[in-house]
Design a protein around this nucleic acid. Structure first.
Length: 817
RNA sequence: GCCGGAGUGGCGGAAUGGUAGACGCGCACGACUCAAAAUCGUGUCUCGUAAGGGGUGGAGGUUCAAGUCCUCUCUCCGGCACCA
């Protein structure tokens, strides 16, 4: 046989598959469906590095196997092309973002095509295509209609470098996730989506998803549910009340003072009563200047100011409590006010110490009421006694000093105490509403019109899409308006309601908008009447297998779930969750251990690897490197292994003969069928390939390989190395494509061999092995084993206590020591 | 601090409670060759000539049998974090 020449083979078959339209998905199939999806890429100017295709290779293998197993497979690809990078690239290179995107898409497609993917390119999507973003805008209109989109003037995160407002999800700590600049709080007009309305459902439905635990946990933490009580503290001498949120209503009898956040609205209401108003507003002003990162540093020195003249009444015991404003209480969480219990909260304890509250009569520490009693106290017999508290106690225990609740276990007292003081049991979330407007050019225009008379009016559906107009300069203005604001002929329009003068909304949508629903459009990409045909949606949804990076855990994957639930509510989709199963792809790091980046000059281009070793080798190598979800270091040295493996399979073709296959080889073959199928299903590609290698090693040992066995090997290999499998498939005389073949069927009876090797242990230590007939039972195995000198010497003169026998595996003789 | 995940040869890693280190890389030796590459063969956790002993971050425990289960602990990675 001729030597293996990947270049000719790969080119030849890629052209043949294209000509035969091998991978065009049919929507009218009676077969069961498998929707296999990659997170679509952002086509940047740098092109692909070897890390990018890793996930695509996995879905390619998975979907190819599914096709062979008789599924109707949808495996599409598209481009998430709105957003800052294209805009920045365009500004830098002085080309229109449209031009830059088209060029980058072409380059990406070229790079992907040489790897031999089975994408159905007839369904290709691009989020910047008006036919696509028409529906991105349509969803926004529906949300607006349902009151889920609202205009707000609250201070938001502003990135001074990107010159745009950002959502919480766009931050990495307190820095812009894109450019790492420290964000500032800036009050400005913005559009916000009420994702918090969905917080409970987003949280509740996580458990049922077949997703990695780590992603589910991240989302749970991000949504951040906590249950607690809202309790009203009436302000002495007025009808006003301060509502606090606490997860520890059981400590209410230990409340020592009340704290308000500097940005809390109650402060305004209390203005007249505050005797030291100047001091208070000075404090609030300086607190406002602090960055979020300064505000929220754990262990930072507590600061605050007492509101002179204001006392709050503890509804549990009518005790009068002083009120403070302090920046350790955050305005945007809970009610912006807390009751402070120094005995049972470290922060309150610290504050109390700092402010010398210990010297006050009812407060600290002389003597401080201690509510839940800890186990040590109970052991020491300290019962119901007022104690001096020198540190706070965060645990659970029996309650003391709590009037009628004394003697309760504190956890059991939470709800009764809340009821007793007429509080409300509520659930709070950490998740915040989604700041949805960007002051940038390269995004979907928000389809709204501001009319002097009618206010905010949605663009009628028939007028969608609102096309993103061309501008002279797409650089950000930095004023809080997008560059669109400068195009008066676009901005000025008529109000759809009153036909009077109207101005278009000039903010654009964030990059996440298109990616929040794109997976639905692949189902029915050409539909001009509706987002997706309902029957088609019912057939294809949900996505059965979704593959992408873990960095999307609390960004894209939350947004998409939110969108999907909304679309479910308005009847567009039939299923409440978009992605049934999710697999994370682990990063491929450069050989220097850093991320691959132009900046470090450590990028490995897949084109080069394909040219030198071939696409099939690249595919096998990336899957063989390690567990799929784990990050791995690229090693050009190790890539030779998979290449050698392919060459072995290649050379094996010379040894293929017609006729019955060897029974021993057949046993290995069927074990391999089982292993490879199971492993692809569970994304254990590294062990699947290892099983194929073991099979090939066995086939090499045999004097000849039957054609049936060899063809089975090729079918198992086909999803991993589609080109070489196809070439060898045709070499052994097949006319149709191997990729239209069925997946080998596992037959358990074929894995049974006549002889098995079993381990012999004495007291749990392996002393010998022996080959016995497969049907050997305990008694004969035990007898045979004891006759062997290597075993006999360990049991000689000792009494056998028992014998453990695991058929076909192991015999353990337990003797007296 | 809270919530997850993970610690196994020189390296990547494998092991339904049942022979730890599969498979691959690297390395060593051998075959082929004038030679090299490629290929093939043998070996490769550790101490020991061997018999045998030790060994999956550490310490205990359960079990005939533990990398795997339980308790404590250390380290690393990810998410959240003055969130009341």
């Amino acid at each position: 046989m001729t030597p293996y020449d990947h270049k000719t083979i790969e080119k030849k078959w890629q052209a043949a598959w294209e000509a035969k339209q091998l991978y065009h998905t049919k929507s009218d199939s009676l077969k069961p469906k498998a929707y296999v999806l990659d997170m679509f890429p952002y086509p940047s100017g740098d092109g692909l590095h070897v890390g990018h295709p890793k996930g695509y290779i996995a879905t390619d293998i998975y979907s190819r196997m599914k096709t062979m197993q008789g599924y109707n497979v949808l495996h599409p690809m598209g481009w998430d092309a709105f957003g800052l990078p294209a805009e920045q690239y365009a500004i830098k290179n002085k080309v229109h973002p449209r031009v830059a995107v088209d060029k980058n898409v072409a380059r990406y497609k070229e790079q992907l095509s040489v790897i031999g993917f089975n994408y159905d390119w007839t369904r290709e999507l691009n989020t910047t295509d008006p036919a696509f973003y028409k529906w991105t805008q349509w969803i926004f209109l529906k949300m607006f209609e349902k009151g889920l989109a609202y205009e707000s003037y609250e201070p938001i995160n502003w990135c001074p470098t990107c010159q745009t407002g950002l959502a919480n999800e766009d931050l990495d700590g307190c820095n812009c996730e894109r450019c790492d600049t420290l964000v500032v709080k800036k009050p400005m007009r913005q559009w916000v989506l009420r994702i918090t309305d969905y917080a409970d459902r987003l949280l509740a439905d996580i458990d049922a998803l077949n997703w990695p635990v780590s992603i589910k946990e991240s989302q749970k933490n991000w949504i951040g549910r906590s249950e607690g009580a809202e309790i009203d503290f009436v302000v002495e001498g007025s009808e006003k009340k301060i509502t606090v949120f606490t997860t520890r209503p059981d400590t209410l009898f230990g409340a020592t003072y009340v704290v308000l956040a500097p940005e809390s609205k109650i402060l305004e209401d209390l203005k007249q009563q505050i005797l030291n108003g100047n001091e208070v507003s000075l404090y609030c002003e300086s607190a406002g200047k602090q960055s979020e990162i300064e505000r929220t540093t754990v262990g930072r020195e507590k600061t605050g100011v007492r509101l002179d003249g204001v006392m709050a009444i503890n509804p549990a015991n009518n005790e009068k409590l002083p009120v403070f404003v302090a920046d350790y209480v955050l305005g945007h969480y809970g009610t912006g006010a807390v009751m402070a219990v120094p005995a049972h909260d470290e922060r309150d304890f610290e504050f109390a110490r700092k402010f010398g509250l210990r010297n006050r009569k009812v407060v600290f520490p002389n003597p401080l009421v201690s509510v839940p009693r800890n186990a040590k106290d109970i052991a020491m017999g300290v019962v119901g006694e007022l104690r001096v508290v020198t540190e706070c106690f965060m645990g659970s225990g029996e309650m003391v000093n709590s009037d009628r609740f004394t003697g309760f276990f504190n956890e059991d007292a939470k709800k009764p105490i809340t009821d007793f003081v007429k509080g409300r049991w509520v659930t709070k979330y950490r998740l915040k509403d989604w700041v949805f407007s960007r002051q940038r050019y390269w995004g979907e225009p928000i389809p709204l019109i501001h009319c002097e008379k009618c206010g905010v009016v949605p663009v009628p559906e028939k007028d969608l899409p609102v096309i993103l107009p061309n501008v002279e300069s797409y650089a950000p203005t930095g004023t809080g308006e997008s560059p669109l604001a400068d195009i008066s002929e676009w901005v000025n329009t008529t109000c759809p309601k009153c036909s009077g003068k109207g101005k278009r909304e000039t903010n654009t949508m964030p990059q996440w908008a298109g990616s929040s629903w794109y997976y639905l459009r692949y189902i029915d990409p050409k539909n001009t009447e509706m987002l997706v045909d309902k029957k088609q949606e019912a057939y294809w949804s949900p996505v059965d297998m979704y593959v992408g990076g873990a960095e999307h855990a609390t960004r894209h994957l939350i947004y998409a779930r939110f969108y999907h639930k909304f679309l479910y509510d308005i009847g567009v989709v039939n299923y409440e969750e978009p992605f049934k199963r999710l697999q994370n792809v682990g990063l491929i790091m450069a050989e220097d251990g850093r991320k691959m980046s132009k900046r470090w000059g450590n990028v490995v281009n897949p084109d080069d690897i394909v040219a030198t070793y071939g696409a099939d080798t690249l595919r096998l190598y990336e899957m063989f490197m390690g567990p799929f979800g784990q990050s791995v270091v690229w090693s050009t040295e190790s890539i030779i292994g998979p290449r050698r493996f392919i060459e072995r399979v290649w050379r094996l073709a010379d040894n293929v003969k017609e006729g019955e296959g060897d029974a021993k080889l057949e046993a290995v073959l069927h074990k391999t069928i089982k292993k490879v199928g199971d492993d692809i299903e569970s994304f254990g590609f590294n062990t699947a390939i290892s099983a194929l290698m073991i099979l090939v090693n066995e086939m090499e040992k045999a004097t000849q390989v039957s054609r049936v066995h060899y063809e089975t090997l090729l079918r198992l290999l086909a999803p991993f190395a589609p080109h070489v499998a196809e070439e060898l498939w045709s070499h052994v005389g097949n006319v149709e494509s191997i990729h239209l073949e069925s997946w080998p069927v596992f037959d358990a009876t074929k894995t049974v061999t006549s002889q098995v090797v079993i381990a012999i242990q004495v007291n749990g230590k392996v002393r010998d092995t022996m080959t016995v007939p497969v049907e050997t039972g305990e008694v004969s195995a035990s007898t045979m084993a004891q006759e062997r000198p290597t075993v006999a010497k360990w049991i000689f003169g000792k009494k056998i206590k028992r014998v453990i026998f695991v058929p076909q595996k192991l015999l353990n003789i337990v003797v007296e020591e």
